[in-house]
Nucleic acid binder design. Structure first.
Lengths: 195, 195
DNA sequence: GCCCACTATCTATGTCCATAGGTATTTGTG
DNA sequence: CACAAATACCTATGGACATAGATAGTGGGC
């Protein structure tokens, strides 16, 4: 149900084609939300049918056209209504911590490898997010720059601050995961080889 | 795909009915993995067809029977193979942080309410997990006690340590989320009412 | 001018999961 | 003993998502 709001948020910045949206999900934003194109195109059509976005065929080359969608006032209203409604927290499904609870069943080397993979995974995320923060601070983020350009000057500081805040949360989480996995490695050392 | 491994992990402790498994998911363990009964019963049948578990009809009252499943050697092998295989990290879908990135579109009171709800949500989780740690330390967890009873004495310390480790990770994450949301509230204070 | 990677869109299949029911028996409580 | 609550198991429907394709035009390099 959140896919459409992720799409509305992105289209709010600037009109895009389904292909563009898919590329955005594949890149940076993909670590907050992701969708394959096979989900994006039908959702856009549904949203257009509901009047939340409107697509227009724009020429592409000499024979072809592509469909670029922009948000309608109804779409903006829907998005803001969602933003102002309480967020429902769905049930957790957490394979990493499910495994951790039963790590005794894994071979010690496998347990170690998994914790190291956990660290590597979150370190990679951390690098990306730190880079995002860097881009926000230095104004080198193309997406954010375009978004700021659509806002009145007095709101830009606000927008920038919220964007930074979101990434800070992701960074804090990644750091917590890394610290936890490191403590797991220490635990394996302490417990030594299994009996 | 992880549901069956969650089921195998639980059935490894002791044979249970589908109803029992569902109750376990509804309670404590449900914060690592959850499944509705409408998913559990069919999955158990599939697993039995594949030879991972075996169910036996045991009498219940005077007319009825219930079906209790236990893990077969093939099931144990499958579970251990999974535990020793690398965990694949699926794409993230994170409604809370998606919203945070666009918090400027929310009314300030709504933004504040959401951050407070985020804090309340994770504080509730925190309480449950701290209680779990307490139960592990004091030996008052029925599930863990039964599991420990199935293990040789020299492995109990190990099992207890891993279980504690898993909950420590969940606690660390919840604390990070709370700290982040609190910093968001401070940010709202600093930015003041919107223009 | 040919080839190839990219852009752009679409369909089809299957799994996972949420939600909402249904039925029958048993067990505990007043 | 009646009755409610819990136990036990089941089906049906629909949405969300993964995966794996198909098709067709475009743009750039050799």
């Amino acid at each position: 149900m959140s896919l459409r709001y992720a799409l509305l948020a992105l289209l709010n910045v600037e009109p895009m084609t389904g292909y563009d949206l898919h590329k955005v999900f594949e890149s940076s934003v993909g670590h907050v939300w992701y969708a394959p194109d096979s989900q994006i195109y039908p959702e856009l059509r549904k949203m257009e049918a509901e009047g939340l976005v409107r697509g227009e065929d724009i020429p592409w080359g000499k024979k072809a056209t592509k469909r670029r969608y922009h948000v309608t006032p109804a779409g903006t209203g829907d998005f803001e209504a969602w933003m102002n409604s309480p967020l429902e927290y769905s049930r957790v499904r957490d394979p990493a911590h499910l495994r951790a609870a039963y790590l005794e069943y894994a071979a010690p080397e496998a347990a170690r490898a998994q914790l190291q993979a956990h660290i590597a995974h979150h370190e990679a995320l951390l690098r990306q997010w730190n880079q995002k923060i860097e881009e926000i601070d230095t104004g080198t983020s193309a997406m954010l720059t375009r978004r700021l350009a659509t806002l009145p000057a007095d709101q830009r500081q606000r927008s920038r601050a919220f964007k930074r805040f979101a990434y800070e949360g992701l960074i804090a989480r990644a750091e917590a995961e890394i610290a936890w996995a490191r403590s797991g490695l220490r635990l394996l050392d302490e417990l030594g080889p299994e009996a």
